[in-house]
Every structure is written in C-alpha cells, then in structure tokens.
Computed example of a mutant assay.
Amino acid sequence: MSNPYLDAPLRARMYAKTWHKLVWVSAVVLSAGLLAPPLFFIAAKKRVVPMTVPALYAAATYGTAVLGDALGNGGNWVGGILALTLITAAAHAAILDTDWKTGR
C-alpha cells in the first residue's frame, strides 16, 4: 500500500540557510515590496509555490503603481495597497519553508 506523503516527489528548499531567509525577507521589506515578484518567481521555479503567485504579486505591486499614476492618487489609496502588499509579501516570504523537513 502506498502512502501519498511518503511517495511524494522531492521538492527543493527555498532557503539553504537561515540567513538566506533573513536576506530575502529584508530585501522585500527594504525595497517596499518591489522585489516580491522576483522572489516568488524563484520560488515558483523551485516548485515551492505555483506560478500564479508571482503573477499576482506583480499585478498587485506594479499594477497598483501604474494605475495610481494613470488615475491619480486622490485619497492616497496607492500607498495603502502597496503597504498591504508589502506586509503580505514579507510574511509569505518568511513562511515559505516551514513545511520542509529534513530527509524529504
């Protein structure tokens, strides 16, 4: 009898060491979320997340900036959306390898 958890394909780790995670999360925060799509694109290439995740982050980050420039920023809504995207991306980047176990 096969077990889907034991027979699951191997998956690459997103971060090799703890300081790699620190560098990536710091880069996402310090770039105000602009480096979130490349981080999640790398994660998608390693098959840690589906390819839709970097596309959604790119649409939220870059699309909001372009749309805010085109429509105007009357109520400062662009800053709010970008701040929420930044917080979400930083938290998501920090928990990417939480289910990875040694020996899998």
Rank of each mutant, 00 (worst) to 15 (best):
V28W: 02
W19T: 14
P4T: 06
A16Q: 07
K21M: 03
F41A: 15
D7L: 10
Y5I: 15
K21G: 05
S26D: 06
L6D: 06
I42Q: 15
K21I: 01
H20W: 06
L39F: 10
A8I: 03
P4S: 05
P9Q: 05
V28A: 04
K21V: 03
A8L: 13
F41L: 14
V48C: 00
R47M: 10
M14S: 07
S31G: 09
D7H: 05
W19Y: 15
Y15L: 07
L10F: 09
A32P: 11
R13C: 03
Y5G: 00
Y5F: 15
S31F: 03
V25E: 10
K45E: 09
P50V: 08
W19H: 13
Y5E: 06
K21R: 11
G33T: 06
V23I: 15
V29R: 06
P37H: 01
P4V: 07
R11G: 05
V29K: 11
T18S: 14
R47T: 12
A27E: 11
V29F: 01
R13D: 02
A12K: 10
A36R: 00
T18K: 13
M51Q: 12
Y15P: 01
V53R: 03
L35R: 05
L10D: 04
V29W: 10
L22F: 11
L34S: 11
P38G: 07
D7Q: 07
P50K: 03
A43H: 09
H20S: 08
A36Q: 05
A12S: 10
S31D: 11
H20K: 12
Y5S: 15
L39R: 09
P9G: 01
P37S: 05
I42Y: 08
R13P: 03
R13Y: 01
A12T: 13
F41G: 15
A32S: 14
V48L: 01
M14Q: 13
F41W: 13
L35W: 07
F40L: 10
K17Q: 12
T52M: 12
T18Y: 00
K21T: 14
A36L: 00
S26I: 11
A27R: 10
W24M: 15
V53L: 05
R13L: 04
K21W: 02
V48E: 08
R11T: 12
Y15Q: 02
V49D: 09
A36H: 00
M14T: 07
P4L: 01
L35Q: 07
H20E: 15
L6H: 08
G33Q: 03
P37D: 07
V23H: 04
L30R: 10
K21D: 02
M51N: 12
V25A: 05
A44H: 02
A8C: 10
S31C: 08
P50F: 00
R47H: 07
Y5R: 13
